[in-house]
Design a binder for these strands. Structure first.
Length: 209
DNA sequence: TCATCGATTGGCT
DNA sequence: GCCAATCGATGAT
């Protein structure tokens, strides 16, 4: 089996997202998703778990081609793809690879960061450890579909923080498949406490740095 | 037009 | 471990 990618900071975020979606999943671990709420308050969360999807495999929403729902996946990289599922949850993805190719990284879990100078309120910790919880916590829904995450002036944006460092990654199969997942494309910040409680991912291998 | 089910979560047995 | 909640996207009829 091919080696799973490690993390490097040798490429700007925009370039990373324009490239291979599995490498993008690795590179997004440790990056920050910022959200400007309607009232102006800003929430930030560090991504600790992500999954890669590509149109060439049946687990991907775009496997059967372009539909109104997955339209954004075919667009330029760096856009936000939000879909609604199970009647009550939204899931957020970062579109990757070139326009015309449908590929995206599902953001499965993140660690909430303290709001600027204040410590996080321990009495009501924000739980973002699951794709549905992440969207609920950051108040993301389909109104934000197609948002450009590389534009810091928008309602949500992505960046690699100044203190970003490569971390140990664990790769497993992806979560929620109704058939055996052929790809270990779930990328987890090893042993990070904010990772989702999903139990069905099969451990494939670890990678250092 | 209809039936099925999902890239989920939390609660209960 | 099992299952309900809840509804839109999708594929079949």
């Amino acid at each position: 089996m091919a080696m799973q990618p490690h993390q490097t900071a040798d490429r700007p975020l925009a370039e990373l997202l324009a490239g291979d979606v599995v490498e993008a999943a690795a590179g997004l671990i440790g990056c920050v998703l910022a959200r400007r709420l309607d009232g102006g308050r800003i929430i930030r969360a560090r991504i600790v778990e992500a999954e890669a999807y590509h149109q060439r495999e049946p687990g991907c929403h775009a496997y059967r081609g372009r539909t109104p729902r997955n339209e954004v996946m075919f667009g330029p990289p760096g856009r936000l793809y939000v879909y609604f599922t199970y009647g009550m949850w939204h899931c957020a993805n970062v579109v990757c690879e070139a326009a015309g190719t449908a590929a995206a990284v599902l953001l499965r879990a993140a660690e909430p960061l303290p709001p600027d100078d204040r410590p996080l309120d321990d009495t009501e910790p924000l739980r973002l450890n699951g794709p549905g919880l992440l969207c609920r916590g950051l108040e993301l829904d389909r109104r934000h579909n197609a948002l450009n995450l590389l534009d810091r002036r928008g309602a949500a944006w992505l960046y690699r923080p100044a203190d970003w460092r490569p971390v140990e990654l664990t790769w497993t199969t992806r979560i929620g498949f109704s058939f055996p997942d052929p790809h270990p494309w779930r990328c987890v910040w090893t042993d990070h406490p904010a990772v989702s409680p999903a139990k069905t991912g099969v451990l494939k291998r670890k990678s250092r740095r």
